[in-house]
């Protein structure tokens, strides 16, 4: 039986392809191991995994979904940034332009908003799944704490994004939120001023929220996610029955 010489064969045997992909088609165990181990993104995974860990009804994919939402938010967020200027004079007009005249602008905005809701829900449910399967127990205590930090970062990411449309919803939601921070004992007033950057919500607040939303918090979340994923491996992989 002679193997057919298809275009795909030619491509995969070319010098360029072989310089990037250093394994054959993953239909042998060796290549299936190599495909995971020689790819920077896939090598988050181990090569082999316990059978129960692939059961959807064990994890409900919730951790993966949280990460997926984060990726969608990053992609759509970058596209939205092309059209959005964080200025109280322009922000609202930019929003209207994104919705009305930017190609796929409305779609990008909608996806960004729903993925943000989705991420909050997925992260919270992921915490519940991890709790009810007892997956926080030693040696995974620290990763549970990293998870709690990621939950807080998710709330903050969503909250800082909420102001950016600069509409009545945004303005008053952040007013309510910042007043809650202002009610903190002892440091309340300072906390509120630090958050708002002024005595009332305005340009200073918008630029603070914008900067936190597009740079600081995503980087912080990405950093904590790197620790979170790495620790899963170091703590013996995904939890399972002993």
């Amino acid at each position: 039986m002679r193997r057919e010489h298809t275009i795909a064969d030619r491509v995969t045997s070319s010098a360029l392809w072989r310089s990037i992909v250093r394994h054959g088609y993953p239909d042998t165990q060796r290549n299936q191991a190599l495909v995971i181990a020689s790819n920077v993104f896939l090598h988050l995974h181990p090569v082999k995994i316990k059978r129960y860990a692939t059961k959807v009804t064990y994890t409900f994919c919730l951790g993966g979904l949280s990460f997926f939402m984060f990726l969608v938010l990053t992609l759509t967020g970058v596209l939205l940034m092309f059209y959005y200027v964080p200025s109280t004079d322009q922000a609202y007009t930019n929003m209207q332009e994104i919705e009305a005249s930017v190609t796929f602008g409305m779609l990008m905005r909608n996806m960004h908003r729903y993925a943000a809701h989705g991420m909050v829900i997925a992260v919270f449910l992921h915490m519940c799944r991890v709790f009810y399967t007892g997956s926080y127990k030693p040696p995974r205590e620290f990763n549970w704490i990293v998870g709690v930090i990621l939950l807080v970062l998710t709330f903050l990411l969503s909250f800082t994004g909420y102001l950016l449309p600069w509409d009545q919803l945004a303005y008053w939601a952040i007013t309510v939120g910042s007043e809650m921070a202002g009610a903190a004992p002892i440091v309340g007033e300072q906390a509120q001023f630090l958050m708002v950057g002024d005595y009332e919500i305005g340009q200073a607040t918008l630029i603070r929220f914008y900067t936190l939303h597009v740079i600081f918090l995503p980087l912080a979340a990405a950093l904590m996610m790197a620790v979170h994923f790495w620790r899963i491996r170091k703590d013996g992989g995904i939890s399972g029955p002993l």
Partner: peptide, 17 residues
């Protein structure tokens, strides 16, 4: 009780994505 991550896990991930 073990499976290869490729394809057993990556398939689930790709599908849910």
């Amino acid at each position: 009780d073990e499976v290869m991550v490729w394809p057993s896990l990556v398939v689930v991930e790709a599908l849910s994505a």
